[in-house]
Design a protein around this nucleic acid. Sequence first.
DNA 1: CATATGTCCTGAGAGC
DNA 2: TGCTCTCAGGACATAT
Length: 276
Amino acid sequence: MIGYRIADCSLPPCKLRPILISPKFSLLRKRLLNQQIVDIGRRGKRLLLHLFDESVVVIEPRMTGLLLLEDPPGPEHLRLCLDLITENEGSSSHARQLLFWDRRGLGTVRWLSKDHIDQVLGPEKLGPDALVITVAELKSRLKPSRRAIKVAMLDQKVVAGIGNLYASEILFLAGVDPRTSCDRLSGPQWQSIHEAIGTVLRLAILHEGSTLSDGTYRNALNQAGNYQNHHRVYDSAGTVCTRCHGAEIERIVQAQRCTFFCPRCQTKRRTKNLTQ
DNA sequence: CATATGTCCTGAGAGC
DNA sequence: TGCTCTCAGGACATAT
């Protein structure tokens, strides 16, 4: 998609309540028309289309939003359509579409001029990306906090990119009790958490994400992910822990979100057998 | 009826 | 009193 020009931008005939688009659609369309996409990026869970004039389109899929290059799962949830085209000098052009599909409609699409980018992506709105943050930075950002580690690591202003599902998986791999207050975590525990963030997220990316039982998540080619088959604790309440083979995975609720953990592997008396 | 991969806002309560 | 931190609850909207 890099190098393509936005030939058109349209709202598909979706009968559901419109998603948040800013500025409003007619102005957004004006801003995007004929702009070239010079780069594609990501900050945490947000997708970025960098345009030729240094403005940027920020797409936030939230719970059920998808960015697709073709084949939307159903036309009734299609929310925004970008027609892209390349024009190679003197040769044939190539057209394709970039679609934003969203079942629940909680996702957002914003266009930001160069001078307004920080209002949405600046350090006060979004922390360092989870795959870039250092252990020292992670620790210094969370250590003074009295929040439970599982709740704090979902805060996108602290570290960007960790969602609810992966927070449980990360703390299981790190062997840390999700209820632990940040200010009581030890140095080795911060190290374990930091390593587990990288391991879990990179593995999840390698497996093209987690397509849960509702089937919503798909990659850009509308293919299901495979990481759900590697979950150790998420949505596994009542099953025997795959590490200690003794305790059953528990489900608790923290800050209105479900958390899954092994009460044996992730409590203070867990120091032995961590590597098994 | 309860649940769901996310984010934003308000207000109450605790602690300094 | 006032400030900061934290969390509960609600809102958003749709489907299972």
